[in-house]
Amino acid sequence: MTGLRHLLASADLDRASAIALLDTAEDMADVATRRVPKLPTLQGRTVANLFFEDSTRTRLSFEAAAKRLSADVITFSAKGSSVSKGESLKDTAQTIAAMGIDAVVLRHAASGAARVLAESAWIDAAVVNAGDGTHDHPTQGLLDAYTMRKARHGADSRGQGLDGLRVTIVGDVLHSRVARANLGLLPTLGARVHLVAPRTLLPFGAEQWPVTTSSDLDAAIADAPDVLMMLRIQQERMHAAYFPHEREYAGFWGLDEERFARLHADTMVMHPGPMNRGLEISAAAADSERSLVLDQVANGVAIRMAVLYTVLSGGRHAGAREAGAA
């Protein structure tokens, strides 16, 4: 796990680093149950949350994670900031860097924004991608993998991958960084991924991914996958007619009550949130015992603690300081 300076894309993680992050998160999850649910690990470090795009759960989750590790947190939202006056990512980053920060958690509407920031000479901080456009959202991929591993292996999760797990991801793959985050990570951990989407919502080149694809949700449900992950219909990114009408989408690709009733008893239901209830997922499915939606949210804090700990520990800081002192 040495050398994880940034977390930019879930495909950057090899199997050993991914499992080390999931194992670290196991212990981070335990912290919440202690008398003092806080660790001193990142005392004196400052984490800046730069959110150029709206988010509730990811921003709160990163903030809670940093605080449980005793880091100081600066949160920046584009709304109500100088970004609305035309300030660029570079200028905002340098302004924040001038305040002396150790890690940047970046959410941005432009795909690749986190990598641009990490590879630029603008700042010297560790960069964690908290969602860049339609590209990736690696902590979401990790928390989904963690949730699946926990559902399958329970208390014996430590050290395990997701070997042989069959995961079906349904819906708006084209606009979904959650789908790409899972696609970049789950096969590394040994899971088999199947995508179900209308042809218009499958990205060009999807046949080259290490997955199988189809447009038939009923056949996918009959196939009894271990996990059925419903993606959110991203109305804010739909600037063209990808399907005729919401009702029609729900009819073909929604997990409605009738389909939920046909689901195999062992199939777990996941959704990255926020849910469009009645569109891609019915309330009955979302609130059922087989739904892992709330586990996903709870596990998010533990995963983000593990990620912040990992990018902010290790030898590089000491090396930089000693080099600076010499």
Partner: peptide
Amino acid sequence: LDVTMYRDDLDRHPTRTPQPT
């Protein structure tokens, strides 16, 4: 009792994965 997260030398060594407490 795992002590990894309480160490004062975390930035001097390669990242350690904590063990169960």
